[in-house]
Each structure stands twice: as structure tokens, then as C-alpha cells.
Design a protein around this nucleic acid. Sequence first.
DNA 1: GAGTGGTCTAGACCACGGT
DNA 2: CCGTGGTCTAGACCACTCA
Lengths: 230, 230
Amino acid sequence: MNTVTHQGIREAIRARIVAGEWALGELIPGEVELAAEYDCSRTTVNRALQALSNEGIVERKRKGGTRVRPLPTAQAKLRIPIIREQIEGSGRDYDHRIISRKRIAPHVRIRQQLGIPGLETAAYVETLHLADNLAFAFERRWVNLATVPEFEAADLKELSANEWLVRKVPFSRGEVILTASAADSQLAEMLSTNVGEPLFTMTRATWFEQRPVTAMELFHAPGHEMSFAV
Amino acid sequence: MNTVTHQGIREAIRARIVAGEWALGELIPGEVELAAEYDCSRTTVNRALQALSNEGIVERKRKGGTRVRPLPTAQAKLRIPIIREQIEGSGRDYDHRIISRKRIAPHVRIRQQLGIPGLETAAYVETLHLADNLAFAFERRWVNLATVPEFEAADLKELSANEWLVRKVPFSRGEVILTASAADSQLAEMLSTNVGEPLFTMTRATWFEQRPVTAMELFHAPGHEMSFAV
DNA sequence: GAGTGGTCTAGACCACGGT
DNA sequence: CCGTGGTCTAGACCACTCA
């Protein structure tokens, strides 16, 4: 294999930036120059610089050249796994219980987020997710039956609503909101804690090609953390 | 310009996957075949498929071919902006107040996260961040003076500790933890709320080349949300 | 062993955007 | 205008991994 790889060049240039060879906002050499320096083709340098641009380390402009970003923004790829995988991935046993299942219209906030103007038929499911038989998170979910009518007949004992939907509508796009909320009486009971306790909360709305699919509120047990590297 | 671009092919293949042309986990045609189909070079198809692989839409293995991911994981690029930019970006005025500035050792939890074994000299700063003169977030920060001795003399009136450090150590790597915590008496006073109120909290530890730089806890005012698209 | 993805190269043309 | 990045191509070799 060639000893000069785009990854190698990318890391070499990153190291030079980190070392402070160029100041914040300063222009770095052009692709042809770097290609000569590393004795490789311009294509390879181009790939390396595009990767750094994606990471937000440098900014590139035609004719303007490539410069170190003036104020780098910390960023990370955040993965939102299926709850079962998240729990099993940490070596615990996953289980879930359907607490309630009805047909009621979503409340205003949910309708707004989903972009549903009036009252559409929606299935409502409450699920308690367990890790090693301890409460892990409580989920309130609305499913738009106009988009996914089959959901009404779905067996949620084996597959949670979450997983059922992922298999049914795998590539839906969504919006996620993270916040902290206080436990109401139902949440306190479900998560074995006290009313008012701070809960790390994730709200998600998903669409499949403009059509609302589902919205959910996921309340994690007290002390839950979400961590990632930047 | 050529009408066949790697982006175009990427979106075309994505559309075929979303449309369900291949089942979850199923093998899709090889690069040569797709190149013939789209009448372009294999290099171009390769780029398109690598992008989809990065997104987690497909999985690729040498000899094994490319297949649709069995259970796609929702993922998003999460950007953690400088607080001032975050506030100004939403059209509000940013300001900050230094509430306290001392030299005290970080508490155990912070030392563990930073990987500092004993008690190292650290500067401690409390900052209240304001948006349109309303409390936005309260920050408790430790700065390792062994790594950044200049911090002790830094003027934090113009530049917040956050921003000062970003300029001084621009490309540090870090670990971020998101959680919900209850307001203690100081937080309640600072954020004009009640003790016990749920606060969306971000903890960050950053290093520059193995050396601990800083750790901070950022408590957002009640109701704060962090949203992003998936 | 053989098929598939991973990558490099050299050359080419184009698009954007300062001068 | 013209320099810089963005992209495509055709061919080549390599590395991994399944059969």
C-alpha cells in the first residue's frame, strides 16, 4: 500500500494546526503546494482538507483558499440508539411493559411539533423501559394512524413501539429536543422517585416524507446522563 | 459541469433505499454495477456509498459488499457553540457577570473526570450568563493552572472564561455530559427560580494533548431546551 | 483463490469569487 | 481575469474476507 494516505495527511495537517503553525483565521497553503510537500497527488490532499472542513477545523472557499477556523465550534456525532440496544450494550437485561394503550388525540404541544393542524386519529402508548428490572425510562408516545394504520394491530409485547416503528418506517427524519423536566405523579410512581424530581427528558418527532409518523416524550430515571466525546 | 455527481448518486441511492427497493440488511449492487447503471466511474459511486456509510445508512465490507443497515441508528451532528454566539445567534443581547473568582481545588467528581489524581492548583470561576439581561445559565468552572498559568491574570470582563480558553487553547478535545439536576440554593438565586427546580445541565471536561485544561458545569435556566434535527 | 471495497494517481474541466 | 477549490475519469494496486 502507498505510504501516503489521505488519513495520514489529514492527521499531519491537523497536528500542524493544533501545534499552532498557523494562527486562528490564517490561510494555510493551497492544495497544489501541500501535494508537492507531501509528494502526493492533489486529489489526496483535497480529500484530507475536505475532511477537516467537515469537522469544522478549517474553512474553505474557492479562490479564497483554506484557512483555520477563527473560532472552532466543538461538535460531536450524537447517536441515539434504540433503548433496548442502549441497555443491552451496557451489559444489562432489557425488558419493557406496556402501561397503557388507547386512542386519544395528542395534546397541543405535540400537534404543533408534528405539524398536525387539527385532531387526527392517533394511537397513544405508555411504555416503561426496564434495565435489569429497574425502571430506566418512561415513554409517552403518539402514533399517527393516518400514516401508519398497521400500528393499531401491532403486537408490542415482543417489540416495543419504538422498535416496531423503526422496522416499519426505518428511514424517517426527525427532530429531537433535550431538556430537564420535573416528575409528575405518574412519572414519580413509574420511576420510583418523588414528584418534582429532575428528569432528563428527550422529545422526538419523526416524519416520513413530509408525513408525521410519531411523537414521543421519553423521561429517564433520575441521575441519567448522556455523554459523548467532542 | 458533469451532470453525474457523487452527491446526485448518493441521493438517488438513498431514495431507492428509503423507497424500500432493498430490504433491511439486504445486499445492494456492487460499485462496478452501479457505476455502469449511472454511467459514471467507480470512483464516483465509491464516494457516494462511503458517504451513506458514514451516515449509518449502509454497512460496507470488503468482499462482503454493501448492505442496507439492519437497524438504522438515528444520529445527528451536535454542535456546542460558545454561549455568546448561541445567544446572539438567536437575536438577543449577550452579557455575563463574574460572580466569584478564587483558587480552590476541584471536588472529587471533577478531579475524576479530568483524570487529576491529587490536588492540583486550579482557578475557580463562577459566571452568570445573561440573555437580554435575563439569567440564561450559571457556570462553575475550574481551570488547571498547571496547563494554562496565564489564566490567573486573564481579564474576564470582556471575554468570558469560556471564550478566553477557546482562543487560548482552540483545539482541545473534550468530554460532554448532559443531564438534569436540581437547583441548589445558589443556583435558585442566580437563575431566579426555586430550590429543587429541574435544570438542564451540561458538564464538560477538556484536555489539550493529554493535559487537563478545564472542567465546567453549566446550569441552564428552567425551561431551556437543546434541539437538533436527525 | 477470488471478489469486493479502499485508495492513489495524473490529467482534465468547471464554478466560484476576489482583483 | 485568473487562482483556488470541487469534481470526474480511467486505470491501477492493495487489503480484507468469504467460500
